[in-house]
Amino acid sequence: MLRGGTSRRGWGFWAQLAFTLLVCTFLILPAVLSMLAGVTANFFQGLSSGLTLKWVVQVFELYSDTLLLTLGIALACLLVTLLIGVPAAYVLTVRQSWLTRLVEEVVTLPVAIPGLAIALALLLTYGGFGDFRQSWAFILVGHVLYTLPFMLRAVMAVLASIDIRTLEEGAASLGAGFWTRFFTVVLPNAKSGILAGSLMVVTLSIGEFNLTWMLHTPLTKTLPVGLADSYASMRLEVGSAYTLVFFVMIVPLLVAIQAMARLERRAKRTRPLREEALPQAVAETPR
């Protein structure tokens, strides 16, 4: 049996498998160790010191406000990118001109520019408005700038793939005015793109560090900023417990994004069916 196995799969297969597993271990091990450290009583003694949740509890005591702020900013960011991004994606798709292409490029710029540079520009321009600068809305502005292109791209890709212009013309020919068309045809058919974009925006906003680190004040710290803070000033176990909390928040979102992508691919695979025997139409006049 073993001989049969080795003859079917040569040594090359096993070598590749071993290499792949090695690389995976190399990548996953730090994450596992880091999370383990968060529940270890004393990291320097190792696991033998026992497992505990006290570091996680301490993280919640010290940083629960950052957690709330992060979620709050992420949701606010989602709301703003939905309100701006979806209509903008629609306009950019339907009205193709040099102007809309220019707008598209400009809006995409923040992806390429380092977050630090954007933050610096925001500070230079609006740093003087004290109340604004000290509020979480200041961080929100940075997050919206950074995440908007992702929402735009996701929605535009879907709208382009379904030929939204012709669908709208179809709806118009049946008597639907602009708003009716927008809510009954455009939005429902852009749903998958809006959902994908939303997951992306929330994930990016929760994990954003560069911009936020520059923009935050001691009273407006988000989760990743708090993470940096705890690494710098707390016991290693606390920082690790913090990582654990972060993972628990972000992993379900990443899984959801993957699931969305899979759904999308499956939807694309469906093709028009084979011609079935069509019964003769117009055979008689129904009254």
Partner: peptide, 20 residues
């Protein structure tokens, strides 16, 4: 009058059926 006010019926080459 825009198309939605003309009460016409239109069949498109790509059919433009609503996938939703």
């Amino acid at each position: 009058l825009p198309i939605e006010k003309r009460n016409v019926g239109m069949v498109f080459q790509s059919y433009a059926l609503f996938p939703n």
